[in-house]
Computed example of a mutant assay.
Amino acid sequence: MPCAEDIGNYALRSVGIGERLLPRSDFTLCNQVTLIGSGMIWNLYFAAMALFFGFFLANALAVAKASRNPWARKPAEGFVFLFRGSPLFIQFFLAYQALVMLPRAGIEVMGFTVATSWLTKAWAGALLVLILNTSAYSAQIFHGALMSVPKGDLEAADAYGLTGWAKFRRVTWPTMMRLAWPSYTNEAIFLFQATALVFFSGFPAFQQRGDALYYASYFADKTFNPFVAYPIAAGYFILATLVLIGLFGVANRRLNRHLPGATRGLKYRPQLLR
């Protein structure tokens, strides 16, 4: 079966498994669906890694923003303002230009040479930008939730003798997560959609192993018909977004399992303006 052969040849091409050369002619719908789906592996990689590392950095920034110590608060406020106040595409561009200026031979650190060339690749440099960007937006969400933790909850924790880290871990942080989770879900969805910008950034794909937009653009250029490849890419993004909403809905029910009506799903409220 030709389609089964295409799937075998191209399903994992974006990670270096299968045919090395892209099809040059006789483009079929199966070609396009398979290769664009292969590229989605990178979009999922960018989203998953950025959400994972960004989550922890955002929590640290939110706590620092709420600190009374100006040495912790001011840098956190500056970081959040910088990355929320500038367009993501410009952040990609400036980061690439800065990383390209690093010495090709690496940087000497305590007698050891630390390689830097890998930072100019999309899988590392673009990921770093996405982590910093989503950390800034998520930190603002978490900070707002942290400031909204009911005073009664904190007083109850004090009455139980909880202080310091124990109070934060068992009362403050779980309440902050419950309050922030719906908005954080929207940020996660936005971040996933923003992975499409990696194709338009200066970070190159390694050995023609690009993301979904890389293959969609390739087919649109070769067939002179953007109304097949790009809708296929959009369909993949929509399906992945539905999965993401489902996963975050499960987490939301887990966070609110002690509340009445917690079994109801999380509603998707898209952030149309940003």
Rank of each mutant, 00 (worst) to 15 (best):
M1R: 02
P2T: 10
C3Q: 14
E5V: 14
G8F: 09
N9V: 00
N9H: 09
Y10S: 08
A11I: 09
R13V: 08
E19P: 00
L21V: 07
S25E: 15
F27I: 13
F27E: 13
T28E: 05
C30Q: 08
C30T: 11
I36M: 07
L44R: 03
A50I: 12
G54F: 11
F55W: 13
F56R: 08
A58N: 10
N59V: 15
N59H: 11
L61A: 15
V63G: 01
V63R: 10
A64T: 13
A64C: 15
A72L: 15
R73E: 13
P75N: 12
A76Q: 11
E77D: 14
F83A: 10
R84E: 12
L88C: 06
L88R: 09
L94K: 00
Y96T: 00
Q97W: 03
V100E: 00
L102A: 04
P103H: 06
R104C: 00
E108A: 09
V114Q: 01
T116K: 03
T116Q: 06
K121M: 05
G125R: 00
A136K: 03
I141Y: 02
H143N: 14
S148R: 02
S148F: 01
G152V: 04
E155V: 06
A157G: 15
A159V: 06
W165S: 15
K167D: 05
K167G: 10
F168H: 10
F168R: 13
T175S: 14
T175F: 00
M176W: 00
R178L: 04
R178G: 12
L179G: 03
W181T: 06
W181S: 05
S183I: 00
E187W: 04
A188E: 03
I189R: 04
A194G: 05
L197H: 01
F199Y: 15
F203Y: 12
Q207N: 15
R209G: 05
G210C: 07
G210F: 01
D211V: 02
D211Q: 10
Y214N: 08
Y215K: 05
A216Y: 06
A220R: 08
T223C: 11
F224K: 02
P226M: 03
Y230L: 14
G235Q: 06
G235E: 04
L239H: 04
L242G: 07
G249A: 02
V250M: 11
A251I: 09
N252R: 05
N256P: 02
R257L: 01
R257I: 03
P260K: 05
G261D: 08
G261R: 04
T263C: 00
L266M: 06
P270S: 08
L272Y: 05
L273T: 12
